[in-house]
């Protein structure tokens, strides 16, 4: 499994470099991009697999992912508001980079299980996963402190970044010619949705970061099983 992981990574890199230079077997960005995203995802999943993790970790991942996806139902009355990005970022912030990535990726996969898988699935998994991982990175930097401002900035930023990653996929696969202008115009076209997403994230992060982080920290503390055996006869 270990070797498979690295072979995948090398393949992904190779296809990217060769594709960029126009000498890949498929000098076809539609296919290349799909391959790039899937192999990157597969690599990260295998990475997670190799690290292992007990029942608590699996249970936390499963529930956080389900909640990130189901949270949308809670906010159905408010257009454009969904907490998935926020959940992934906070999960990463408190529980670490890998967990953040997995929560984000699983939210995407899960939503699509119920709404229907599509070519967008790997890219959504990657985008949400990366948002979770970036939250993890932030958590690493600030250690145990809960600093609202950086989370808010990150969450807001990811509203746009998520859109741009999805645009990137769309642009690579379906827009020709591939140049800066066409990419920008795709981003302009999606700016309204991205802004809505970003503002929603901003609100979530500004008002919920502290309580949610505290809840997650309490939960993580329950993870740490402290066993003090005392044998007194």
């Amino acid at each position: 499994m270990r070797s498979l992981r690295y072979i995948l990574l090398v393949l992904a890199g190779l296809s990217f470099i060769l594709g960029a230079r126009g000498i890949s077997p498929f000098d076809n960005w539609s296919l290349n991009s799909l391959f790039l995203a899937s192999s990157l995802l597969a690599f990260l999943f295998l990475q997670f697999e190799a690290r292992g993790g007990g029942s608590r970790e699996i249970a936390a991942l499963g529930t956080l992912a389900a909640m990130g996806a189901a949270g949308r139902v809670l906010f159905a009355a408010i257009p454009g508001l969904q907490p998935a990005t926020f959940v992934a970022i906070l999960a990463g912030y408190v529980m670490g980079i890998e967990t953040g990535f997995m929560v984000g990726a699983l939210i995407a996969l899960l939503s699509n299980f119920f709404l229907g898988q599509g070519p967008w699935t790997p890219w959504q998994m990657l985008a949400w996963g990366l948002s979770g991982a970036s939250g993890g990175l932030l958590g690493k930097i600030f250690k145990e402190k809960i600093l609202i401002l950086p989370i808010v900035v990150l969450a807001f930023f990811w509203g746009y970044l998520f859109g741009w990653i999805m645009n990137f996929w769309f642009w690579l696969s379906f827009v020709r010619p591939l140049n800066f202008g066409t990419f920008i115009s795709a981003c302009v076209a999606s700016a309204w949705f991205d802004s809505l997403h970003a503002i929603g994230n901003l609100f979530f992060a500004a008002f919920l970061s502290r309580p949610v982080a505290i809840m997650l920290m309490r939960f993580r503390k329950r993870f740490q099983c402290v066993y003090l055996a005392e044998e007194e006869r």
């Binding site: 099983c225 402290v226 066993y227 003090l228 055996a229 005392e230």
Partner: peptide, 21 residues
């Protein structure tokens, strides 16, 4: 208990003759 929940334990628990710890 104690393998999942941790905590502090005094005395012994034997299942099938073997200490659970």
């Amino acid at each position: 208990i104690p393998h999942f929940h941790g905590g502090r334990m005094m005395g012994t628990v034997k299942v099938g003759g073997v200490d659970t710890r």
